[in-house]
Nucleic acid binder design. Sequence first.
DNA 1: TCAAATTTTTGCGCGCACGCAAGTTTTCGT
DNA 2: ACGAAAACTTGCGTGCGCGCAAAAATTTGA
Lengths: 203, 203
Amino acid sequence: MRERKKQATREALRTAALRLALERGPENVRVDDIAEAAGVSPRTYNNYFSSREEAIIAAVTAERGSRVAAAVAARSAEVSLADAVIDAVVELYTDSGDHPPDALLMITTSPALRACYVDTVTTIEGPIAEAIVERRPSMDHLTAKVLSASVGAAAKVALRQWLQSASVTPSMSGFVVPSGSLPDLVRTTLMPLAPALDAAATH
Amino acid sequence: MRERKKQATREALRTAALRLALERGPENVRVDDIAEAAGVSPRTYNNYFSSREEAIIAAVTAERGSRVAAAVAARSAEVSLADAVIDAVVELYTDSGDHPPDALLMITTSPALRACYVDTVTTIEGPIAEAIVERRPSMDHLTAKVLSASVGAAAKVALRQWLQSASVTPSMSGFVVPSGSLPDLVRTTLMPLAPALDAAATH
DNA sequence: TCAAATTTTTGCGCGCACGCAAGTTTTCGT
DNA sequence: ACGAAAACTTGCGTGCGCGCAAAAATTTGA
């Protein structure tokens, strides 16, 4: 019940941050503005988010953790661990959720938001680790952490590559990326980890 | 040649930071102190390091990148890619370099330094990626990045585990870690990635 | 219901990170 | 050797992150 209120203010801060950022542009939003819009003190903002960008990003990536966890769990026990995890992560990046479509554009435009967005991938590692041990209870917890951390790292590589190739968009470039599709890129970066996932799963 | 001077001040800042931190304790060192000790303006400090802890950590981890790269390259072409990379990274953490022995203790003691120390693992990822493509020129660069990022992620897991188990040192604990040896722990966390490394190496 | 205990919010203060626009040094072309 | 160009340093100003301790709100126990 106390927890209710905390999640409420958290959500209030997130949505206020995103709204203001979309209205005025990310550069023209101070944390005082966000705090005021959410009806809390500026100091309280930093009890919930440890940087100015974090709230904005959180508005977009809030339930990432639970979504991957669910996506992994949803995969039939027949498919390999690698396929389950990889497909789940790819799925995460296929549908952009129910957010204002210009939000993503704003993130890719602002360097600070880009950086924060990439860092936020870490969020999914814990849930993935849990989902893995749930699938393979016999697996060492430390190994599960390593695998999920590797998945997160691979996803970060994909994200960075995509963001960079997106920033060099117009006309020519070194065409580093064969495909402009983020989900495809994510799948590509996750593929090399499949042997590790499967090997760990089969003993 | 101009580059000489830059590296000189960089080194001056690093060593000054480490010395002061060891003398007074990390909490009692302001960046102004470090800058003054190195004979530059406080503003210049932030042209070289983007946080107060970074310089201290850099004093200990300065040539990590070149060291792993060399260690990987030193492995005979006969041994598998996985063995080469894993052994190289483990070697990185076996000898602590020629630093004051109390430096590591200070790092493990201060939370801020711990965090920064873990983050610094990222430093080795670029060099490892290059070392990998040098070994397997036919390998896709993106795959190399993914693998090196995974190696970095695994090393971070090891480091976090080690630091945490070290902070709960005295008497009983949930004995999360079987071995108190960091190199052994690193090897343990890297093992699960071996299949991925080898699979990528053999196309 | 009321008071003690726990948790959360808030104000305050300090130091830090960094953009910006000079000022200073180094490099280079002729 | 000299002046233009590029690179590095510095001072300044602003906003931010967070430790700390007091105040406010919430939960708990009787």
